[in-house]
Amino acid sequence: MTATHADYRLSQLDQLEAESIHIFREAAAEFEKPVLMFSGGKDSIVMLRLAEKAFFPAKIPFPVLQIDNGLDFPEVAETRDRWVQRLGVRLVIASIDDAIARGIVVDDGKTSRNRLQTPTLLNAIEENGFTAAFGGGRRDEEKARAKERVYSHRDEFGQWDPKMQRPELWSLYNGRLHEGEHMRIFPISNWTELDIWDYIGREGIEIPQVYFAHQRRVFERDGMLLTETPLNPLREGEVVTERTVRYRTCGDMTLTGCVESTASTIPEIIEEVAAARVTERGATRGDDRFSEAAMEDRKKEGYF
């Protein structure tokens, strides 16, 4: 029997997976000291899964880096620890509190912890001598990201210069660096929010419970539903109520909003995401709301 082309078709998820694995292998081969930025959120978990597949049966040949902002959801931290333990990768923790104590970043009481993550991250990259950092950014997330390369070059200050990006053709990635520079690498650039969920469902991989519908005591601020926590004191007029919610993204607990939802399984989440009319960042990320170019500005400074 002769095979026809119809027998050799890869589904779009398999094609995305193959592309991401190619990127991981390429970077691991070419960079002296890569690291994977691992928050414990769904995108970084998918990244870690892809890295696991890329090098199996060998262990992932680079450590994972966690920026501890002190404001993570406890469920996210637990899931993250389980993943790190299961895969036997080395965990490097860079804590904002520690960076403040050492005078690397200044907490003026006005700047959000989100903003303080950038200098903490850049310092961790420099101190550990990392030459490449894998990030879970996706181009469908935000319009500044839509124009970012898979290999995103950062100068010795960690800055991104959107106008000076290297052309990126075929699957040929240019990893050239000068002393002190590093590369941010985005293996899941071409995945959408829905792809991530389809993949989590297909692979049956563990993600933090906060992504599923649960009862939570929340209050409304700037049109977002935030969780009640001693880390985020209520302002005048804010009232706490208990609602059935879930999170679409997992960032800083004090800035990340949840959405009212009864989706408690992956198929229900996929159905909800497919019907959603608001982007995940628009709905739930206080950190992107300061201005139309909030993400662009943070990226230029060296944000994830």
Binding site: R139, K143, A146, K147, P162, K163, Q165, S189, N190, T192
Partner: peptide, 10 residues
């Protein structure tokens, strides 16, 4: 428009 932008739909 300065650069190649990637968009997604299904």
């Amino acid at each position: 428009t300065i650069d190649v932008a990637y968009r997604y739909f299904a």
